[in-house]
Design a protein around this nucleic acid. Structure first.
Length: 432
RNA sequence: GCCCGGGUGGUGUAGCCCGGCCUAUCAUGCGGGCCUGUCGAGCCCGCGACUCGGGUUCAAAUCCCGACCCGGGCGCCA
């Protein structure tokens, strides 16, 4: 019985032994009487060496004419060979083409010739065969696992809230309308209201990792119309409390990725460092001052423009918080300071100019919340399912939402957020 | 949505400013041939493209208009 091995598992102990490998034909180098087939599986590459005189004629013939990216099964003897890449090669007894790939390929997996992102996304399954690209998603997996582990250890329980909702939950962003039987419905922009209702339910600490949908017609390297949000909500904590959780989480994720994804970081050619905590905190007013010194004026109360954020990032290239935002610049549920109600207990987590997360201590007082909803020009009636939870024992609470795609983008220094999303959805892309 | 740049074989490009020797460059790929140690294998032969529609002109890949698509910046985005 020959056991199946991954390419990366082949080592000294296998020399002289028979192994079975499954994978894709990465390259074929045909020297006439000697053919090298480079086999790729999800763990790496290995050379299959096929000398005409040492294998049966059928195997030799098949290896010679196999197309690149065909799926093959190879059974053979492992040989230590200094001339082979990686130091080992397989002399095949069996070379079975399980599925022949057509030629030419829609894009070059070996990357002798580059392909544009748009072409790559059109043929994403092939793009993902490149180790360098697959590494991004192996790391993303590790990142999400690390987030789950961390939050679970902190006493959070994972929940799932509806993505189909009845009303424009918070105002602000554009929503995707959908038809829900005879009713009008929307794809949810954020789990915000549901997370808060669960605070009233007494779960105390919840998190959700799920999609959020925004129908904005933006066209940038850092926006998606469908994104994955890591959301938490915690009772009996203020904004400072959840900021600490956030910075410790980021630090832990980096640590886990560095330890567990050494191989994949190497495939990408990236060295990561664990960001030091606590992250620096600057107030909204201080942020405005920095931008102003550099020639970009923002009227107090407005959101900070991209141009200004880029100027601020020159001074703050790493992770930092911008805190104490104007109440009118944040959503209705952010808690204003008692002594200074024009600013609120909210924060954005930045990495350079990129906003990774935003959060706040929330208003837990029913009447204040109603007042704020009205001030924001919305009607409390449409929030009834939400507001009711505030009338029967809502604890003080705080929370944040962290963009998973933004996090992987900033961690791996991706130039375009789409690089870190398997099948991205943007203004123009609905397929694949 | 606005501004700027772009769309040439399967992929990535040169040519476009200054229209005609473009029968369109180069690389990779693909097909065929030679080759027993490649590792971006090498060498020889061949295959394959001007986004679409309209206009200007004797003549358009090249100039003009429109559509569609792509990239970047900005806006929008709690």
């Amino acid at each position: 019985m020959t056991i199946r091995k991954y390419t990366a598992e082949i080592g000294e102990e296998d020399v002289g032994k028979k192994v079975k490998l499954y994978g894709w034909v990465h390259e074929v180098r045909d020297h006439g009487g000697l053919v090298f087939v480079i086999l790729r599986d999800r763990e790496g590459l290995i050379q299959i060496t096929i000398p005409k005189k040492k294998v049966d004629p059928e195997t030799f013939k098949k290896a010679k004419k196999v197309h690149r990216e065909s799926v093959v099964e190879v059974v053979g003897i492992v040989k230590a060979e200094p001339k082979a890449p990686g130091g080992y090669e397989i002399i095949p007894e069996k070379f079975i083409v399980l599925n022949e790939a057509e030629a030419p390929l829609p894009l070059d997996v070996v990357e002798k010739v580059p392909a544009e992102l748009d072409t790559r996304l059109d043929h994403r399954y092939l793009d993902l065969r490149k180790p360098r690209i697959q590494a991004i998603f192996r790391i993303r997996h590790c990142m999400l696992q690390s987030v789950r582990n961390f939050l679970c250890k902190e006493g959070f329980i994972e929940v799932n809230t509806p993505k189909i909702v009845s009303t424009a939950t918070e105002g602000g962003t554009e929503l995707f309308p959908i038809s829900y039987f005879e009713k009008e419905a929307f794809l949810n922009q954020s789990p915000q209201l549901y997370k808060q209702v669960l605070m009233s339910a007494g779960l105390e600490r919840v998190f959700e990792i799920g999609p959020i949908f925004r129908a904005e017609e933006h066209n940038t390297v850092r926006h998606l119309n469908e994104a994955i949000s890591i959301d938490i909500e915690a009772s009996f904590l203020d904004h400072e409390g959840v900021m600490k959780i956030l910075e410790n989480l980021i630090s832990k994720v980096y640590e886990d990725v560095i330890v567990k994804c050494e191989k994949y970081l190497d495939w990408i050619g990236l060295k990561l460092e664990v960001p030091e905590t606590p992250f620096e905190r600057i107030s909204y007013d201080e942020a405005l001052e920095i931008a102003e010194k550099k020639g970009e004026e923002i009227p107090w109360g407005e959101d900070i423009s991209t141009t200004a954020l880029k100027l601020i990032a020159e001074e703050m290239p790493d992770h930092y918080f911008i805190v104490d935002w104007p109440t009118k610049s944040k959503p209705f549920y952010a808690m204003p300071y008692d002594d200074k109600p024009e600013i609120c207990k909210s924060f954005d987590l930045m990495k350079g100019y990129l906003e990774l997360a935003s959060g706040a201590q929330r208003i837990h007082i029913h009447d204040l919340l109603v007042k704020r909803i009205k001030e924001c020009g919305m009607s409390p009636e449409s929030f009834e399912f939400y507001l009711e939870a505030f009338r029967y024992g809502m604890p003080p609470h705080a929370g944040w939402g962290l963009g998973a795609d933004r996090l992987i983008m900033s961690m791996l220094n991706l130039k375009n957020i789409r690089e870190g999303v398997i099948f991205p959805r943007d203004r123009n892309r609905l397929v694949p």
